[in-house]
Amino acid sequence: MSMDDHSAPNVVDLPDAEATRALGERLAVLLQPGDLVVLVGDLGAGKTTLTQGIGAGLGVRGQVASPTFIIARAHPSLGEGPDLVHVDAYRLGSLEEVDALDLDSSLEDSVTVVEWGEGLVEHLSEDWLEVRLERPRGGEGAADTRTAALLGHGPRWAGIALPS
């Protein structure tokens, strides 16, 4: 863990999918152009659902769905805010540069949310917000409950109060 990592993650309990979406909307308030958000979690942990909330909070165009197939999808802002670039590294072998994705939106002007990007994309920026989503395993626990652990990395996130 580097010096710029900010203590322990904030853990948020999410009783259902609506709560996951609402957390995304709360995060959207904090997000600025150029920000990188790395979503970590197993299949079905709620990564796309959280991104739907971020998209709703930012006020962007188009249905925020899983971008696994086309790898990245850009959602232009409907207002004054940043665009949302939704990347899914699930099918990617490697990601040397986000430029290789040939996105229409520029990352400096967008909020970039990456699913399945842990260990692949952190080198793209000195700052990123890590969101670790967990769901109950196997037959334990209610179907819809999740937890989110939020942790900022780098100077951009120093002193920023994350939802808890």
């Binding site: 197993d42 299949l43 079905g44 796309t48 659902t49 899983s66 769901r135 109950p136 395993r137 196997g138 037959g139 179907a143």
Partner: peptide, 9 residues
Amino acid sequence: SGLKTAVAR
């Protein structure tokens, strides 16, 4: 997505 998660569990 919910179906996929149900299968995973």
